[in-house]
Design a protein around this nucleic acid. Sequence first.
DNA 1: TAACGTGTACTAGCTTACTATTACACTATA
DNA 2: TATAGTGTAATAGTAAGCTAGTACACGTTA
Lengths: 126, 126
Amino acid sequence: MEFNDKVPIYYQIKTVIYDQIIAGERQPGEKLPAVRQLAVSLTVNVNTVQRALSEMIAEGAIVSKRGKGNFVTEDTQVIETIKTQLITEHLSNLYEQLHRLNIDDQDIINALVTYIERRGNSDDNH
Amino acid sequence: MEFNDKVPIYYQIKTVIYDQIIAGERQPGEKLPAVRQLAVSLTVNVNTVQRALSEMIAEGAIVSKRGKGNFVTEDTQVIETIKTQLITEHLSNLYEQLHRLNIDDQDIINALVTYIERRGNSDDNH
DNA sequence: TAACGTGTACTAGCTTACTATTACACTATA
DNA sequence: TATAGTGTAATAGTAAGCTAGTACACGTTA
């Protein structure tokens, strides 16, 4: 996996797994790949994976069962809360950043709409 | 100044100064505060400021005159280009991140509109 | 010319993040 | 019971970012 060298790798791993859980790619109660397996597929050290998981365990999104594996929580309420937090955080970031560039509310919306339209028309969607 | 400990300080300084230039708070040709002064006001080391400025000099946004000071470029075309890049980058980030959460185009726009409306109604604007 | 305000460069030491490696604890199963 | 698969912990080494401190180069001005 490619990482942004401006942000700690363990933090980016955490973000990716959260995204997968929220997007429904990893269902509540589902077992995650073994830490050693995750480390290999992410081309990263086991300790780095462990650090990401530890924080998610502390936050209640992952449940760890020694000898068995790590599992996505079955508490969908926790997942919903995290989803809401993440979305608000992303919207807030965009808003703050464009506001800092002296762009007003309406222009922020217009810019997003235009961006999405252009993206829809171009061939390289993604 | 407060810094996000997930991103290098020099990089955050760079971002802040770019934002100021683009927002028009620092005009083309304007002299920046002395590096030692910036270091004090940002409560950061001179070397850290220098690192941020070096990159902006390399990118053509800042012009350094030894013994005189650092100045915002007078080439407004360079500033315009950076502005466009930054805006697109921020929009792209939001789009990618919300898409990863399995939110479609229309819902992304709706979410932003709702976010801005709520923000406008609340008292703590900022 | 002397003093001061500038940018720039270099060294040394500290902390955090990451890696590699080893070891240990628990569970399932042949 | 032995083996394999799992999570967890601890050590040691490397690299990047930051700080403190010192020194030097250039420009302005008294």
